[in-house]
């Protein structure tokens, strides 16, 4: 029981995320123009890119919050198709943290976290609450368990959201700009938790604008623009000698202000 606290569950295959030529259209607008990506188990990948580059869309395709129209997405050996069994299985194995936290305002922090384990994993309430409290302790706010989300600060809410995702024992964690809606002084407390998770061996795909975090934690950085992956590089190379003009431009805009 305690072992699961230390790291993610074993995966079935080594390449937990495999995307092959993924296309997505919104009406006539092509948001993803053939994206290829393979993420290994335990890897931390950060996706960067200007707004509207399709990075959020891409990450949301990975647990079927958006539907891709062409190409294949295979998560932990299960292909994302219209098959409801696959969708629910993949969602069980993929945790997601949103920009706007998306906590359930009518439930207490503890109920927010235990809702899914009890109803999806069919755990007993005691077991779910035990694990929830452990995760709340790990993200540093066990004393807030009986409060409502509205009573917490933004940083605390986001940590609850992380704990909510983790209590489901996912194999993969998706972060969709987790710090963008936070006040500056609260960003670090969330990044600390993410760093901690990365060290514990979670497979993480994160869309973020936190360059420091990307440089320090990511094993690979993926730069997207116009619905395509422009560059995949190690953090060191990405920031110091990027290969693409587009990347250079982006970095100069980001770093020179």
């Amino acid at each position: 029981m305690t072992a699961i606290m230390d790291g993610p569950e074993a995966t079935k295959v080594s390449d937990v995320i495999v995307c092959r030529d993924v296309h997505k259209w919104y009406g006539d607008f092509e948001a993803l123009k053939g994206v290829d990506l393979t993420v290994e188990a335990g890897e931390v990948v950060v996706i960067l890119g200007p707004s509207g580059s399709g990075k959020s869309t891409f990450i949301r395709c990975m647990n079927r919050l958006e539907e891709h129209q062409e190409g294949r997405i295979i998560i932990d050996g299960i292909e994302l198709t219209h098959d409801v069994r696959n969708i629910s299985e993949i969602r069980r194995e993929v945790g997601m943290v949103f920009q706007q936290f998306n906590l359930f305002p009518h439930l207490t922090v503890l109920d927010n976290i235990t809702l899914a384990p009890i109803n999806v994993r069919k755990w007993s309430r005691d077991r779910a609450e035990e694990l929830a409290m452990k995760w709340l302790t790990r993200v540093g706010i066990p004393e807030q368990a009986d409060k409502y989300p509205g009573q917490l600060s933004g940083g605390q809410q986001q940590r609850v959201a992380i704990a909510r995702a983790l209590t489901m024992q996912p194999k993969i964690l998706l972060f969709d700009e987790p710090t963008s809606a936070l006040d500056p002084e609260m960003i670090s407390e969330v990044l600390d938790v993410m760093r901690d998770l990365a060290k514990a061996g979670y497979t993480i795909v994160a869309v973020t604008h936190e360059m420091g975090f990307a440089r320090e934690v990511a094993q690979r950085i993926i730069f997207m623009d116009g619905g395509q992956i422009v560059e995949i590089n190690s953090p060191e190379n990405f920031f110091n000698n990027p290969t693409h003009e587009r990347t250079k431009l982006f970095l100069s805009q980001i770093l020179n202000h």
Binding site: D15, V18, G42, I74, G201
Partner: peptide, 20 residues
Amino acid sequence: MAQTTVNPPGSDANIPPPPD
């Protein structure tokens, strides 16, 4: 980090066959 690697990373054997 508990990990049971069935296939070497990057190989196509990681991917299940297409539905058809």
